[in-house]
Amino acid sequence: MTHLRDIQRAMQQSVLVCDAKPALAIVADSQGATARDRLHVYIHAYRARLAEVLGNDFGGTLAMIGEKRFGELAQAYIRAHPSREFNARWYGEAFPHFLSTTPQASENPAIGEMAKLDWGIGLSFDAPDEPSVGPKELEGLAPELWPHMRFRLHRSVQRLRFEFNVAMIRRAADRRDPIPEAARLAASQGWVVSRMDGRIFHREISDDENAALAVTASGGSFADVCDELCLWHDASDVAMRAVTLLRDWIDSGWLADLVVESGTSPVSDFN
């Protein structure tokens, strides 16, 4: 008698290699349909289901390259990446990297970048709920303490960098507008995806903002942010720029966990 594990391995092998043969011996003949046809129901369903998962999670990529091309690349990924996750929510995690590196998608280097944006939007969508720092938390803070403020980024914030106009394409796809042609940008752009009140937002950030945000994300203080901005602006403009960025980040809900380590470092010249 064939054991349970052998049956499961044979069935799984048939599904993964897209061939009824490994499981033919364990399936009983019966009227109405051949064993081969019966096995192909599972073989087909596996590919169709995972392709649907990828289509749902990579809506911008699907809109950019069309159903036929997306389907071909999805099937290539499905062949190369059997799922190891119990939750299909995570099946597409390696899809952006696959699209960025496989020769099969080399005709358009924007594809992998688009997929990174799609995945980032998904991560932001169901990131943990947590309070953002609000303006009132800063209102009560003495100016001399501002240099010592530290934050971390809200867990819905995804920082991305694009060489192509993928954000514009995703926006058009979300609005069901005509999809623009993929095109390389004059210079690479930083983008932030975030969530506020359950809704997803994404916007371009300038290079100085990107650098300042990186300092904040890595645990730097507001004084460190100002030091970073000194590399981008005249010293006389830095304080105003830093405060403007901080206000924008707070209004966008990008910051969490305000901590002020007073007395641990000298007060910055900027306040």
Partner: peptide, 24 residues
């Protein structure tokens, strides 16, 4: 069952109706 050896087929695969499978 939905997979074996760490793989997940994300499909509801039928079981053989045997004493071994029942016990399991």
């Amino acid at each position: 069952w939905t997979g074996v050896d760490g793989t997940n087929l994300h499909d509801l695969m039928p079981l053989p109706y045997t004493a071994e499978a029942l016990k399991h």
